[in-house]
Design a protein around this nucleic acid. Structure first.
Lengths: 362, 362
DNA sequence: TTGAAAGCGCTAACAC
DNA sequence: GTGTTAGCGCTTTCAA
């Protein structure tokens, strides 16, 4: 604890025998008063312990908070653990820093849907990072009369957005697998809705997914497999609520238990893919000789492990979101930014082994 | 961009033919008016597009911003790359979340010392994370009439603080080295002041360091070596401005070039130590057989590499800082929190090789 | 160069 | 259960 608010601009003006305008000018428009007077004002301020204009009062008056709000559905701490989210955060922070804007992380408790924090945030705009389309916090954000930019998901009519072409990106990746000859493919995806479903995801559930990104990625895989003559309805898709390597492990186990003939696992994130690789290792399956595995995101750890995946420019995405938001006054800015992705070939995809090889070795 | 602010609490009250209090109560004290009236108010609000009470105006009135400011001297993005800072951030976020407080990251540009961002931040208090004692942003924070908690450094009279006993922790670690028999020890430390000095740091510079933590850690090493009869003035200490493995590499190179007889390198952070390990490898020095290396922090990567180091509870530190700040109204809270550390034995410290062994192998 | 007046939008006593 | 009254501390035309 520090001292209690001692002086205000008004009391300082009274003390000095000048008007409040003058004191205000001393802080905000040094050129509007004589250097001598300004010096006197600042000097007296110091003497009285006046800490300068109150930021909140100033914000009320100027209608500018000088900060950008960031909404994440997960706990804040999750953002500091997930490499992709972290990259986004860094990019966004960079953009804010460049514009001298604060970054206000909105405290969300996913359990008790407390929308109040959104209403309490004194910010000039919001960046919403990857939330489900039925997220109540998102609704709260959109109800506020400030510009908003959504990163990744959801797609909301009339709201600016920055993202990638998830569907095309993963289609290209999955095509590599079909080209290599894979036909028996299992899929591991992240949560599709706000309710926990750790298990197989029916086609209905996939199509009803509240996370557009996951929906798009599954469609992309379906596109590639469909083009290779594989019926999507027969492709096992396992969903996991928590985004962790442990999830990837158990999901891979579930898939491989249900169909040991699978020759490839397509994962909709690197984290899940890294988990799947752990599980393959545990089972004595060599990757990629016995099992191909692909990821999505291109996080550093994936690269270190030579994962075959899609790299998306997460830092750039954060920066773009920030820039888009901070340029909201400019009517000529783009309303939507789609960033490029790139396939990282890695070393976890190879032709499937034939049945013969499976039994008798290479 | 969204819509322009359409309605205010007052206009809504007028429209409804009720007082502003009633509308305010509808939002803030549902029990103060009939459910029916409340329903009508909210309904009309929706119809008029009234987004609910303006957070800034409310903050001005209630004198509560609902957010905690975080001051870091580095670029914000640095914090997202440094594992220790990240852990702290996560802990702090956790504490804020638990209290429903936002976390306002103050945008700092280390180049152009722009203290204005500190004055502009609408927050109820500040957490200051590891800045030099002459940091102008810190001064700005302390000039504001809000509670402040410093994490790690600097130590400021009358300001709450959370940290660890850096000196004792590293003394214990360095003692392990002296006990193993090391006498020719080199030290790699982080920046000691705001000016860049990538090279040897004289004892004077060490003692004048503006970063208390580094000063304490160097003293700690000096304590241990002194107890073993090694004169500190003869111990080479190399400083690096940037905190990166590259710094650790070049610092280790500088030390080993200047004195190939060194048998151990004490680093004041894990990042630097990991860099030093890289350099040792490059030179064909085996760790720990040919060279012992120790770190500080206990970041996950250090543990993965089996680094002999001190683990400090970074997440806990962040959480403690948040809790301390948010408990500022409570006069019985501690004014200072010192967290425990623990030595991670690792596998990078071993007895020094004798001169003979050096020449003829083990 | 300085000052007077008019709010920014809201909440909190306190009275009805 | 509802209204009246007073500001919270500041910036900003506009006039002097």
């Amino acid at each position: 604890m520090h001292v209690r608010r001692p002086a205000t601009l008004a009391s300082l003006a009274a003390e000095l025998g000048v008007s409040r305008t003058t004191v205000s000018n001393a802080y905000n428009r040094p050129d509007q008063l004589s250097p001598e007077l300004r010096r006197r004002v600042l000097e007296t301020a110091r003497r009285l312990g006046y800490p300068g204009p109150d930021p909140v009062a100033r914000s009320l008056r100027t209608r500018k908070a000088g900060a950008v709000g960031l909404l994440l559905t997960e706990n804040l701490s999750y953002a500091f653990r997930d490499p992709a989210a972290l990259g986004f955060l860094e990019g966004l922070a960079l953009a804010c820093e460049g514009a001298g804007q604060g970054l206000h992380l909105v405290p969300i408790n996913p359990e008790r849907e407390d929308v109040a924090a959104v209403h309490r945030a004194g910010v000039d705009g919001f960046v919403v990072y990857s939330v489900p389309d039925d997220d109540p916090h998102l609704a709260a954000v959109l109800s506020r009369p400030v510009p908003t930019v959504v990163a990744d998901q959801p797609i909301v009519e009339g709201v600016d957005r920055v993202g990638i072409d998830d569907r095309a990106a993963i289609t290209a990746l999955a095509q590599r697998l079909t080209t290599l000859g894979h036909r028996r493919v299992g899929v591991i995806c992240m949560r599709l809705a706000r309710d926990r479903n750790d298990g197989f995801a029916s086609v209905e559930r996939q199509q009803a997914a509240h996370f557009h990104v996951q929906r798009a990625r599954l469609s992309g895989v379906a596109d590639a497999l469909g083009a290779a003559g594989v019926e999507w309805a027969r492709v096992p898709v396992v969903e996991r609520f928590d985004h962790s390597t442990a999830s990837g492990e158990s999901a891979a186990a579930q898939l491989l238990d249900s169909d040991p003939q699978l020759t490839a696992l397509v994962c909709t994130s690197d984290i899940l893919a890294l988990g799947a690789m752990n599980e393959a290792r545990r089972r004595g399956l060599r990757v990629p000789q016995d099992l191909s595995i692909t990821g999505f995101d291109g996080i550093p750890e994936a690269e270190r492990h030579g994962l075959t995946t899609v790299r998306q420019p997460v830092l750039e995405k954060g920066r773009a979101a920030g820039k888009l938001l901070l340029a909201s006054v400019d009517p000529t800015r783009p309303r939507e930014v789609t960033l490029d992705t790139e396939i990282l070939s890695g070393a976890t995809a190879a032709p499937p082994r034939t049945a013969e090889e499976r039994w008798f070795g290479p």
